[in-house]
């Protein structure tokens, strides 16, 4: 994946802990690359957690992790060896 794209845009991934989410929507509203959207599924407390609708746009800035009041999401840069 890293060789195929020559763009200098950093690549990232977003990890969501569905059961910790309370569905406040901060991560969805403040994601700079509009990666996230509310999912249709419910978690065990009845909230709709987010899911990545546009995962390729993620730049791993971790702003979602900074905003999440429930420590339920974080973004990370994808390094070459992981990819």
């Amino acid at each position: 994946m890293a060789e195929a794209k020559k763009s200098k845009r950093p690549r990232g991934t977003v990890v969501i802990s569905v059961e910790l989410c309370k569905g406040c929507g901060f991560c969805i509203a403040f994601c700079p690359s509009a990666v996230l959207e509310f999912s249709e599924m419910f978690n065990s407390k009845g909230y709709h957690p987010p899911h990545a609708v546009n995962p390729d746009a993620c730049i791993g800035c971790d702003l979602c992790g900074m905003y999440c009041p429930d420590f339920a999401i974080f973004g990370a840069r994808v390094t070459r060896e992981v990819a």
Binding site: K22, C24, Y47, M66, Y67, C68, P69, D70, F71
Partner: peptide, 12 residues
């Protein structure tokens, strides 16, 4: 999970 309400800014 913490006791704070959904949408509370304390976790932030």
């Amino acid at each position: 999970p913490n006791i704070w309400c959904p949408g509370c800014g304390l976790g932030t």
